[in-house]
């Protein structure tokens, strides 16, 4: 079965009304340095940071890594984990707090709520919030969906749904890796539940999160160069391959369940 990568910019342009999908478009369009339009109203209002709760921004706080920095060595080295969590993620947290320090009304919103409708955020700080609230949310999800004893074949409901949607786990993994490789520049590759309720592979530029397109991010891999450069340098494809060794299928199953429309 063929899947499509919906282009995030289509939603930004507000033309996502029906089913405008762009087949497998791998790269973000050039000239989109600072889009001023905000994402279309989202379909999902579910929490996505955790299966059962949203992410607070009053203040934003760096969640501890749920395992030791060297625990994911099957895919990611300890130094990368430390810098990635302690410095990159921390910077997104610091920047969001800094941007919102005089904005009690925005602080009251969850990070998800901000990203679902960026029009609620004053224009002067909208792009900063988009980038840093997105960075905070994406990394918060990322740490949870990896685990030291992860990897292997998917289990439970997600295994079934992957087979139904993509034919097999192998085929799903192939398409996910291809979308991650094709993301030009910085960004993420995701498995989402789209507004039609189906599983779909999408990729987002920079720190955009699929909830801005109304989709629920079930699992995602970070393809910013900082995620893999110390160990893999220019070999993003190798990183994408090895990453499956640390996927936390139990957590992915919790998120799959949480992503069901209620």
């Amino acid at each position: 079965m063929k899947t499509f990568l919906r282009h995030p910019i289509t939603a930004l342009l507000g033309v996502v009304l029906s089913a405008i999908v762009v087949a497998c478009q791998p790269t973000q369009p050039v000239g989109s340095q600072s889009p001023t339009a905000s994402p279309s109203p989202a379909v999902t209002t579910l929490p996505v940071a955790y299966p059962d709760r949203e992410l607070s921004a009053s203040p934003a706080q760096l969640p501890p890594l749920p395992y030791a920095a060297n625990a994911l060595n099957q895919a990611i080295d300890a130094q990368t984990m430390q810098i990635h969590h302690d410095r990159h993620h921390q910077t997104y947290v610091d920047n969001i707090n800094d941007a919102l320090k005089d904005q009690p009304n925005v602080q009251k919103l969850s990070v998800e709520a901000m990203l679902r409708d960026l029009n609620q955020v004053p224009e002067a700080i909208r792009q900063t919030v988009r980038n840093n609230a997105g960075g905070h949310l994406n990394h918060t999800i990322f740490w949870q969906i990896m685990a030291p004893n992860g990897g292997g074949q998917p289990t439970g409901a997600i295994a079934q749904e992957i087979n139904q949607t993509f034919g097999s786990f192998e085929e799903f993994r192939k398409q996910f890796n291809a979308a991650g490789s094709d993301r030009f520049g910085s960004g993420w590759v995701w498995l989402v539940r789209n507004p039609q309720g189906q599983l779909q592979i999408v990729s987002t530029p920079n720190q955009d999160n699929p909830i801005s397109d109304g989709s629920y991010p079930i699992m995602g891999n970070d393809v910013w160069e900082h995620a893999y450069y110390l160990r893999y340098q220019n070999q993003r494809a190798q990183y994408l391959n090895n990453w499956w060794n640390v996927v936390n299928w139990d957590e992915v199953n919790r998120r799959t369940q949480a992503s069901q429309p209620r």
Partner: peptide, 9 residues
């Protein structure tokens, strides 16, 4: 990031 990651992380 590839321009500076090995030197400056």
């Amino acid at each position: 990031e590839h321009a500076y990651y090995l030197d400056f992380q």
